[in-house]
Design a protein around this nucleic acid. Structure first.
Length: 991
RNA sequence: GCCGCGGUGGCGGAACUGGUAUACGCGACGGACUCAAAAUCCGUUGUCUGCAAAGGCUUGAGGGUUCGAGUCCCUCCCGCGGCACCA
């Protein structure tokens, strides 16, 4: 332990505080940068290793931005309302207020000990009445806008503890604490209509810079699907079943209905003779977990309930079943089964021998895919001609642009084709030449589709291994006809190639003699006609030269055939067997059938979202009181804004009630009030808000945290918002992140905030795991406390280790051994200070500039681990030399500062400098100085590394190749076929 | 079951757009310093054959594309995260 981290840490933390180094200035001339981390929930366990990971990462970014001349806002606060604190308070007989106060003090001390560059003057706490006044105010805005409403929803109720439970507290249907079986109780709850914003929450994802996986997860959570609700009358009753379908176009194919086992109509509609079987099935279904029910490989089960529905279009009688593959929570809990066009329905119908009616067939629109060769312009001369012909025949012609046609790369080309894989069907033709041919083969093999008609046009001179392809793709029945003579002898063979592939020769083959060409021209033309369209024709030039022949070929493509699907046909297509709707496309039929059911009054268009409205009530004490009063005369009345906040009354002890209400209900003094409107005796709402409420707008409060007139000043919001960079955990992607985006959008619509989206950029960090790779948790006793580490090694060591331990976005196990390595690194830095001299070694200068470049780039890309590794490389390089200059060392300290600010400042000061490192500018890399003078060139023979040589920078290619040849002479046993030179990297001889 | 991410030495992990795999750190081994130990410094460290020179093998498994694959494509296995019979 050579450096005194305890004193150094304390010294610089005190100085930063004194000089307000990290104070964010409103309306500064500098460009602003608002950098946000998820504020912690101050639990009793104290800080865990995950907090410093995320907080240090953005601290590094924040510190770098300040040195780059930005006015940085990096705030912190406490998300302190919620269940764990309340439960802990009950258990220990303390008040939640006290517990929160203690926890916040611990967290604050711990965070401050890390030297994070938060602007502590903006610290906020969601449980502070001055804060939740505005949370309540915002709830009232939702209420006034009609977005908050009451709805009966079930809650988990523990009859033993007499308290409402969160889902998390219910373990396998029992109370987590006492083990009693949890009851469902219906209770009126406040809801917020987030689903009204579903579309915008989805759409606006395109305007923000979130990690792709975060966007995807939000999209899936919102889960938009468009469809219709359709009512089916029940035969012999006045009842009806409403189903939800995303495929109203398949209405005529509905051959039975399926209700979820929990569907209320199952009980009503089941006929007497079916009771036994149906009810035992329902019982069984209830015992299966939803994950199991979701398993698609599971054998379908279900029972007929004895009743029949009337098909609204055909009037036919169709049976009603119940089956657990239909979920009560989704849609209406009932479906119309269309086995011909839905895989699950198909499996079900097959198993129980129910009728299958096809109502959609493969699209008439036929696809022709034109694949060009290696010509420079990416288009072949015959494209326009053939496109016109095929279009006239009703083909949709696609001629994809291949990446760099002069440099064919099969894999890349295949990539381009992938997006057409769903369009290619039995009516498609693929026309290619030259390189287009092998690509067509590989493409079809890749997408694993049966080929019905593939016309290949290939010049025989192309250096293609046709025989090789023939062997490689036996399933395509490839035949090659490269000469006229062969064409004649193989005639019969060709005629037999129904549904198969023929590669043909082209006229531009220089090897075909002129006289053959004459013959070819005359004969082939006739032959093609005879061939019944099992496609043949010459290429590029050929196409243009023999127009009548081509006409004849193209004619043949006008035949189409429809294959009856032997599986459910789920793709789009054309409607059949549907009366007046026949001939419409899937898309048209969806609209027309929806209008038809709407006219008949038996259904309507529905856009369905997986996203559900937000249950905003909690039957708990430790949350923001909902600022509403219930008056027997006026109904629900908002507390006037001037009376906010509605302060949470302090409870001496909790009296569990059996009413399903929050503990607040027992506090009659508080509950009983007068109606703000009419003055009559009234009662306060006793439910509180979820802890998501306070965290849905905290980023706004940071802009103006002490404002008593508004949640924040408009000008300050306009200056700071949106948040430029927000980092947090993946686990918050669907709830907190979505709720706060919604909340902000609502405030935006009301004119209260300046931006529609709150966060410009969102990234996420990986978990810090225990040493064995499992999750750190209190119950396992494997939680590592940052305090010990800070005491033993210093804040800088913890910070640098957190950044160095692994890729930031991925989970990494904690390893105490690695911490020692970081400590050694910082001690080496300290020793470097002894080497300060007048001059620099050239190698040190070079390494410095390479380091500046890499560290600068890596921080932006959140590659903190490799940034630290580069800093280590610099120190190792510098320590080998006699001296390094003061200027070089200061540049290095500037870069070290975001990671290890205490030591960096201490060393800077030891050089006689009095200013804080934080006031310096971020160094700028000089590309010239970073350049190596010599390069190591690898020499390969047939791709195998054989030697390497050192050459001066700027050596000519020919000189390098010559030198390389000598070095590997003994491996060059035969003639060199090809020499590949990659600039500055390698030479590869192919022999 | 589906989606997303991942699988590289004894360990955490590097590797830019397909171009010398194993940077950096830990650990281990050998040496210096020391009465000794710790700390520090120097050296070695993917693996197999070999005294050596040299050569073979190696990025979860198998196949493919390429002069060249950890990286691209296909099939499969394993781990982590998320999740729906979404009609």
């Amino acid at each position: 332990m050579s450096y005194d981290h305890k004193n150094i840490d304390a010294k610089w933390q005190a100085r930063w505080e004194k000089e307000k180094t990290f104070h964010a200035e409103d309306f500064s001339e500098k460009p602003k940068f608002y950098c946000l981390v998820e504020f912690p929930y101050p639990s009793g366990a104290g800080l865990h290793m995950g907090h410093p990971r995320s907080y240090t990462a953005l601290d590094v970014v924040a510190r770098k931005r300040r040195m780059e001349g930005f006015n940085v806002l990096y705030p912190i606060g406490w998300d302190a309302f919620g269940l764990p604190t309340e439960n802990y308070a009950i258990k220990t007989g303390q008040k939640p207020q006290e517990v929160t106060h203690q926890n916040v003090a611990t967290f604050k001390r711990q965070l401050q000990s890390l030297g994070l560059s938060f602007d502590w003057s903006r610290e906020i706490n969601t449980t502070d009445p001055a804060y939740y006044k505005w949370t309540q105010w915002m709830f009232l805005q939702f209420y006034k806008a009609g977005l908050a409403y009451k709805k009966k929803m079930p809650i988990n109720w523990c009859p033993a503890c007499k308290i409402g439970l969160a889902n998390e507290e219910v373990m396998g249907g029992a109370c987590e604490r006492c083990g009693a079986v949890v009851e469902k109780r219906e209770k009126e709850q406040w809801m917020i209509a987030i689903t009204k914003y579903a579309d915008r929450l989805l759409l606006d994802l395109t305007s923000v810079d979130y990690l792709e996986k975060i966007k995807k997860q939000q999209e899936d959570w919102i889960g938009k699907s468009e469809g219709a609700e359709i009512k089916f009358a029940i035969e012999g009753t006045h009842e009806s079943v409403t189903v939800f379908t995303t495929r109203p176009d398949t209405l005529f194919g509905a051959t039975f209905l399926v209700l979820a086992p929990e569907h209320p109509l199952v009980a009503t509609l089941t006929t007497r003779d079916r009771h036994g079987e149906v009810f035992s099935y329902i019982k069984k279904a209830a015992a299966i977990t939803s994950v199991d029910r979701a398993d698609e490989t599971r054998e379908k089960t279900g029972v007929f309930i004895g009743a029949y529905a009337i098909h609204p279009a055909t009037g036919e009688q169709i049976p009603i079943w119940t089956a657990d593959y239909v979920m009560m929570e989704y849609g209406t809990g009932a479906i119309m089964a269309v086995p011909a066009h839905d895989e699950r329905d198909f499996a079900f119908a097959t198993k129980f021998d129910l009728p299958i009616t096809q109502v959609i067939e493969a699209p008439q629109k036929k696809i022709a895919l034109l694949l060009h060769g290696t010509g420079g312009n990416g288009r072949d001369s015959w494209f326009p001609w053939i496109s016109e012909k095929l279009t006239a025949l009703g083909y949709k012609v696609i001629a994809p642009d291949m990446p760099d046609p002069t440099k064919p790369d099969l894999q890349k080309w295949l990539h381009v084709l992938e997006k057409y894989q769903n369009e290619i069907n039995e009516n498609s033709i693929i026309i290619g030449r030259s390189l287009g041919c092998p690509i067509a083969f590989q493409f079809l093999q890749k997408i694993n589709k049966k080929i019905y008609q593939l016309v290949m046009v290939a010049p025989t001179h192309a250096d293609m291994d046709w025989e090789g392809y023939k062997k490689k793709f036996p399933e395509f029945g490839v035949e090659f006809v490269q000469t006229i003579a062969q064409a004649k002898t193989d005639w019969q063979k060709i005629q037999n190639l129904t549904d198969k592939v023929t590669l043909f020769f082209s006229d531009d083959d220089p090897r075909i003699p002129l006289q053959v060409k004459d013959y070819y021209q005359r004969d082939l033309r006739a032959d093609i006609i005879v061939l019944h369209g099992k496609g043949h024709f010459g290429t590029s030039a050929g196409v243009l030269k023999f127009p009548e022949a081509m006409d004849a070929i193209v004619e043949n493509f006008s035949d189409t055939k429809i294959n009856t699907p032997d599986l459910a046909y789920v793709a789009d297509g054309v409607v059949i067997n549907s009366g007046e709707f026949d001939g419409l496309t899937t898309k048209e039929a969806k609209m027309k059938i929806i209008s038809w059911v709407e006219e008949k009054g038996i259904g309507k268009a529905i856009t369905h979202y997986k996203l559900r409205d937000w249950v905003f009530s909690r039957q708990r004490y430790w949350g923001e009181p909902i600022p509403l009063v219930h008056c027997p005369v006026c109904g629900w009345v908002p507390v006037p804004e001037s009376d906010l906040p509605v302060v949470l009354p302090e409870v001496e002890n909790y009296q569990p009630t059996d009413s399903g209400e929050s503990p607040l209900a027992a506090m009659t003094d508080w509950v009983n009030t007068t109606c703000p409107k009419c003055g009559a005796k009234a009662k306060r709402e006793t439910d509180t808000m979820p802890n998501w409420a306070g965290s849905s707008w905290y980023f706004l409060r940071y802009c103006d945290p002490r404002n008593n007139e508004a949640f924040a000043d408009q000008k300050k919001l306009a200056y700071w918002m949106p948040t430029d960079w927000y980092n947090g955990g993946m686990e918050h992607t669907t709830l907190h992140l979505l709720y706060s985006r919604f909340w902000n959008k609502f405030l935006y619509d009301q004119g209260f905030v300046p931006t529609s989206e709150p966060y410009q950029k969102r990234t996420s960090h990986g978990l810090v795991l225990a040493q064995d790779g499992s999750k750190m948790s209190k119950s396992k006793g494997n939680v590592v406390n940052p305090d010990q580490l800070v005491v033993e090694y210093g804040a800088d060591v913890l910070r640098v280790y957190e950044m160095f331990m692994g890729p930031f976005g991925e989970p990494v196990p904690w390893n105490e051994q690695g911490v020692i390595g970081v400590r050694r690194f910082l001690e080496k830095v300290e020793r470097l200070r002894e080497k300060i001299g007048e001059v620099d070694d050239e190698a040190v200068i070079r390494c410095l500039h390479q380091t500046i470049k890499k560290v600068t780039d890596d921080i932006e890309a959140m590659r903190f681990n490799t940034a630290v590794s580069q800093l280590m490389i610099f120190v190792n390089t510098a320590l080998e030399k006699e001296k390094i200059s003061k200027a070089t060392f200061i540049s290095f300290l500037t870069m070290l500062c975001p990671f290890a600010p205490h030591l960096a400042n201490e060393l800077h000061e030891s050089l006689g400098e009095t200013t804080l490192l934080e006031t310096l500018s971020w160094p700028i890399a000089n590309a010239e100085l970073a350049k190596e003078s010599e390069l190591e060139i690898a020499i390969q023979v047939n791709g195998k590394l054989r030697a390497s040589i050192l050459v001066a920078c700027g050596t000519e290619e020919s000189a390098i190749v010559e030198q390389a040849k000598e070095v590997v002479a003994k491996h060059l046993t035969s003639e060199i076929k090809k020499t590949i030179y990659v600039r500055g990297r390698l030479v590869n001889f192919v022999v």
